[in-house]
């Protein structure tokens, strides 16, 4: 079970947590074949579809609670921004929000 994080995470810790969430959402067998980096884009590189991004968003919500409005942040993006969204941008956003 995810818990609300008490301590502020650094950039590397957030990256590892995001990798863990991605693995939980798309499955270990697919992640093994991928080289997930800060430059990995959600739709092109990780091939996450929108319902998987919903699951990913829910995991962020469950972990960080109200301190991060991840869905609200995504909802302000247009389709091009969403398609090009990479992991580094998400990690930086979460770090700023903490």
């Amino acid at each position: 079970m995810d818990n609300i994080a008490a301590a502020k995470l650094n950039n590397d810790e957030i990256f590892d947590l995001m990798k863990q969430f991605i693995t939980e959402v798309i499955g270990e067998e697919f992640v093994e074949e991928m080289d997930i980096t800060m430059e990995s884009s959600f739709t092109k590189d990780l091939e996450m579809d929108s319902i998987e991004i919903v699951s990913f968003s829910e995991k962020i919500k469950a972990h960080f609670g109200d301190q991060i409005d991840f869905t609200g942040w995504l909802s302000n993006m247009d389709l091009d921004q969403l398609i090009n969204l990479d992991l580094g941008t998400i990690v930086n956003y979460i770090e700023e929000c903490q």
């Binding site: 579809d49 929108s50 319902i51 991004i53 919903v54 968003s57 869905t71 609200g72 995504l74 909802s75 969403l82």
Partner: peptide, 11 residues
Amino acid sequence: NLSVYYFNIAP
């Protein structure tokens, strides 16, 4: 699936 609403329309 529900994601057609989740990110923009629902909020």
